[in-house]
Simulated scan of single mutants.
Amino acid sequence: MWNHIKDFLQRANLRTLGMLTGAILGVLYLIVGFWKSIVFAGFIVAGYLVGRWLDSQEDWRDVVERLIPNKTRD
């Protein structure tokens, strides 16, 4: 089953994937409501970002330094 889904996602164009995503989000909205759907989507985005960060093997200190640069005065 997962192979069929993987094959479909590799062959599908972006319009089809966007339509499928919209349908899933629409059903989620109808079932649980708007704000719960927004929170759910936020958790998905946060999980993606954490996974991407872990995949890149980047040190958390480098991330903090990039977000909050060290402002030393000469």
Rank of each mutant, 00 (worst) to 15 (best):
R61C: 13
Q57E: 15
N70H: 12
N3I: 07
Q57H: 14
S37V: 00
L67I: 15
R73L: 10
L49R: 14
N13V: 02
T72E: 15
E58F: 00
L30D: 08
I31V: 10
V39N: 00
D62C: 08
L9I: 06
L28A: 12
W35E: 08
L28T: 09
V27I: 13
M1C: 06
Y29E: 08
G47R: 11
Y29F: 15
F40M: 08
R15P: 00
M1H: 12
F43I: 05
D62P: 01
N3P: 04
F8R: 14
V63N: 05
Q10H: 13
L49P: 00
S56G: 06
N3Y: 06
G51E: 07
D59N: 11
I44P: 01
L17K: 14
V64W: 15
V64N: 09
E65Y: 14
W60E: 10
L25M: 15
L28F: 01
W53L: 14
K6F: 05
L17N: 02
G26H: 07
L25D: 08
D7Y: 07
L28G: 11
L54S: 11
N13R: 10
V45L: 15
M1Y: 02
A41S: 06
Y48R: 13
L20V: 04
I68G: 05
V63D: 01
W53R: 09
L67D: 03
L28E: 04
D55N: 12
G42S: 14
G22C: 01
G47Y: 04
D74L: 10
V27D: 14
A46H: 04
G26E: 07
I44M: 12
R61P: 02
N3R: 11
R73D: 07
E58W: 00
R52M: 06
R15T: 02
I31S: 06
D7C: 06
F40T: 08
W35G: 00
M19P: 00
W2N: 02
R66V: 05
F43A: 03
S37C: 10
T16Q: 10
T16G: 00
R15D: 01
I38L: 15
L49Y: 11
E58M: 09
L20H: 03
W2S: 06
D74V: 07
Q10I: 11
T21P: 00
F40R: 10
E58A: 08
F43Y: 12
A41W: 03
W53I: 04
I31R: 07
N3T: 09
Q57T: 12
F8I: 04
G22W: 02
P69K: 03
E65R: 14
